[in-house]
Design a protein around this nucleic acid. Structure first.
Lengths: 309, 309
DNA sequence: GCTCAAACATAACGCAGAGTTATGAATCAC
DNA sequence: GTGATTCATAACTCTGCGTTATGTTTGAGC
């Protein structure tokens, strides 16, 4: 709506510098008639001439001088904006807000943030620890840029599934789920199955993990008796060590705690492993910092969380 | 050149305010697809998204926020420029630099400047006194906006004629040229002719006026003997009053001095009158202050300079 | 859980505006 | 006067930015 456009400002400025339309045209990479015609149009729009031909050259009117003066302000604001956007594009600035589940806090997240900080010193990093469903909500609300989540196969309430195309998910690794049992308990050499724990008391934590447990036990043909509830891996191990029950624990949860002697970890057939993902909004693809964080996540070395401890 | 255009800035700003593309479109008078497509193009140009769709609404990315922030600066600069140009257009600001010949300094110019000052208090006025040829040079050099000049008919060196289309000339009035002679000299009742002064001594001033005198005398068949040279009307009258010669004097020059008793003013057949003009550069037509000054000049009441004193 | 309204995306299209080249006219320097 | 420089005008092309029409998704309310 404004009768003033950027081209006019740039042209007037160039004319002010060069004192000639030809010079201005050359300076801006235009043909001479382009400048001439553009100024005519602009003058018509503004209702008064911007330049006055003076012999062979040209000089600005007061209106032209006004534009030339303000052109400087506009140009520098534009340059500043361009510069800042370039910095975002070049990952010399920007921000990544990561949301991840508790077990990742001590493992995946520090490594990820470390890698990002090393590669892109200018990028601001922040982290919040929440369970996967909340992490996805944060993404959707625009309060986080990258979520590190896990999902269990066949999870009927998997929050990822609720937003099919909205999320871009990059699988990072498989996180095997082990059973922690008291080392004192008798074990024959036979292959372990979940069925063997049908009469055990269970220690279970977060709803999502518990969901997986219930699902697996149902498949195995029994319903687990959950006697103790905690999310804390160290606490779970303590309970197990003292013979108070058995528990499922992902390998990732074990990698940042010391496993007591009294606890034995066993792989159980039919116990589905969970998968850990880096998740971003599909709509946020293209945002440099988000793309970089996703890439950094899939490039993480995850060997020590996948090979047996 | 710059990947950023004003429309993008205005749209991003509107989106920042409205939180929705539809709202922004309505705010700006666009259709909704226009906003959507424009943002797509802008994102492509900038290499990163400006908005992220969040459910049914939308929110800005960091890049978008950068633009929205700088948009304020740009907009206010543009508004300022627009405002200043409107003031020029509305004659609440601007400048008129007038150049006029000495005789006009005490007559036409004060009245003109007075009228302008009264009508347009915001317009800056300035004045320089120069002879017509210099006044036209000032116009051409851009050092004056309006010239008050005179011209004699059949003046072979008329400076106005050198720039045929470059100048816009508005005739103000005819300035009759009289002969000042000592009142003591005998005069019969017959009609006065220039021929009668062929043996007189003349007092003459500026080259242009003298040119006219020479021209007229040549037509009358003699060459005037110029004994005294001055431009000053009072001085001329003093010389005439003391019987030192005769002189041609335009009525305008007489209107600001007192004519001594000893001087008689006579109209002479064949003495061409000069015409007074307001002159501006044709190229400056359209400049509000110049147009207004030209108009004010032709609207001046010139009665007391044209009717016999 | 279904339906409806609101919001964004995509497609197809029309038009204006801004650039181009070619050419003419005026000015200034030598 | 002559040639170089500069601006103006004409005629044309084409990109880009709007439009309308239509489809898809989301979220609220019954």
């Amino acid at each position: 709506m404004s009768e003033i456009d950027l081209t006019t400002l740039r042209i007037v400025r160039a004319v002010a510098d060069e004192k000639t339309l030809s010079g201005a045209a050359a300076l801006l990479g235009y043909s001479q008639p382009a400048v001439s015609q553009h100024l005519s149009r602009a003058s018509a729009r503004l209702g008064q001439p911007l330049v006055i031909r003076a012999g062979r050259t040209v000089r600005l009117t007061e209106a032209g001088a006004v534009l030339a003066r303000h052109a400087v302000t506009v140009q520098s604001a534009l340059d500043a904006a361009n510069g800042e956007i370039s910095e975002l594009g070049g990952l010399r600035s920007g921000a990544v807000r990561v949301a991840a589940f508790p077990t990742a806090s001590a493992t995946v997240v520090p490594r990820l943030l470390g890698a990002m900080a090393a590669r892109y010193p200018g990028v601001r990093l922040s982290y919040v620890e929440v369970e996967p469903p909340e992490a996805l909500d944060l993404l959707r609300n625009g309060r986080a840029d990258l979520a590190i989540t896990f999902r269990y196969p066949d999870d009927w309430s998997d929050p990822h599934a609720r937003y099919p195309d909205e999320l871009t998910m990059a699988p990072l690794f498989d996180d095997e789920v082990l059973i922690a049992e008291p080392a004192a308990e008798d074990r024959d050499g036979s292959r372990t199955t979940l069925q063997q724990y049908s009469s055990s008391e269970w220690i279970a934590g977060c709803p999502q993990c518990r969901g997986n447990l219930l699902q697996a036990c149902q498949t195995a043909g029994f319903q687990p008796r959950i006697a103790h509830e905690t999310d804390n891996a160290a606490a779970v191990l303590g309970l197990v060590a003292n013979g108070l029950g058995v528990a499922q624990l992902p390998r990732l949860a074990l990698s940042s705690v010391t496993v007591p002697e009294e606890v034995r970890l066993v792989r159980v057939a039919g116990m589905p492993s969970r998968t850990v993902h880096a998740v971003a909004l599909s709509a946020a693809r293209g945002v440099p910092a988000v793309d970089a964080a996703l890439l950094a996540a899939v490039e993480l070395d995850v060997g020590d969380w996948t090979s047996p401890a």
